[in-house]
């Protein structure tokens, strides 16, 4: 049998025997970024459509957690840096060729927007809340006046943020598993789906629960469609892409991906949501939690598996 044996004298920490540069920080950030994007998208969407009365949870309540999500995400991004004291270098330049650069700038736009959005809705969620200084009320009034403008800024920047979490990985030609343009839309849709799930968890009215359950169901359908296309694309490509796909088709990530992400994170919640639509009594927090759990694991598995996929030469 013909064989090829490659022996390398290189043993650099975090590089060999396979790339191990990104740990839990990156997938946690990718998840939180996507979740924040999803929540902000729905809040802005229903505001622009003038549905404030029907969707108080999506517009007022759930976005209150977004500043926390983004701050935790930013902290984990910071923890991932190896040269931490130089992080400000990100904001002394704009490099459009680098997804990480424009992602950092998008975060610089989305994070303050999320704080403003949460601030102008605090009084609606907590009626007894009062600002400690009167000038804060003046600022609040100003932002409430321009709420629709903020909503438009939020809907655009949240879509870019959700997309960027996937593009960050797909820009790396050196890691064949990541190097597919499906990853951008897949992470965006997954982020929207976890955002819808979060709204289901917080929703009080039947209308909101049912609407977000239906939206989530549609988004899971799109996700499954994108996953099929992801593998079709990889398997129809070159040997390195086929090897990358085989990590999930018999390789070491097969069980984790298909059982935990696809079955528990997508198929089972989809079935429960269909049953709910058929008037079965399903506690909706179950599919919602499963979707969130699947969203986290999707990021972890893609980030870790991608680092083991490589060109051989």
């Amino acid at each position: 049998m013909r064989e090829e044996i490659i022996t390398s004298g290189r043993m650099n920490p975090k590089i060999d025997p396979y790339l191990n540069i990104w740990h839990w920080e990156i997938p946690i950030y990718l998840f939180l970024g996507g979740l924040a994007a999803g929540i902000l998208f729905f809040a802005a969407f229903y505001t622009i459509n003038g549905k404030e009365k029907d969707f108080p949870t999506a517009i007022e309540k759930t976005p209150l957690i977004v500043p926390f999500l983004l701050v935790i995400g930013l902290i984990s991004l910071f923890l991932d840096l190896h040269h931490k004291l130089y992080f400000w270098r990100l904001y002394t330049t704009i490099r459009l060729e680098s997804p990480m650069s424009w992602g950092a700038w998008v975060l610089m736009i989305v994070t303050p927007l999320s704080f403003i959005w949460a601030a102008i809705h605090l009084k609606k969620v907590f009626p007894s809340f009062k600002w400690p200084f009167p000038w804060l009320d003046i600022i609040e009034e100003f932002f409430i006046k321009y709420k629709k403008v903020i909503a438009w800024a939020m809907i655009i920047s949240s879509l870019i943020l959700g997309m960027y979490t996937g593009i960050l990985l797909s820009a790396f030609n050196a890691r064949p598993l990541w190097n597919t343009s499906i990853l951008g839309p897949l992470f965006l849709v997954s982020g929207l789906s976890t955002g819808a799930a979060m709204n289901i968890l917080f929703a009080k009215t039947h209308l909101e629960k049912k609407t977000f359950s239906t939206i989530d169901l549609a988004l899971i359908g799109v996700e499954l469609f994108l996953i099929v296309h992801l593998f079709m694309g990889l398997l129809a490509s070159t040997q390195v892409q086929i090897d990358a796909a085989s990590l999930f088709l018999g390789g070491s990530y097969t069980a984790a991906f298909w059982v935990l992400v696809v079955l528990m994170g997508m198929v089972i919640p989809a079935i429960l949501e269909i049953l709910e639509l058929w008037k079965f009594k399903i506690p909706l927090f179950v599919p919602a939690l499963l979707v969130i759990f699947g969203g986290i694991l999707l990021r972890f598995i893609i980030t870790f598996a991608g680092q083991t996929s490589r060109w051989l030469y």
Partner: peptide, 10 residues
């Protein structure tokens, strides 16, 4: 350099 690792992955 902020040590983000993007170049290493690329």
């Amino acid at each position: 350099c902020i040590g983000c690792g993007a170049c290493i992955a690329s």
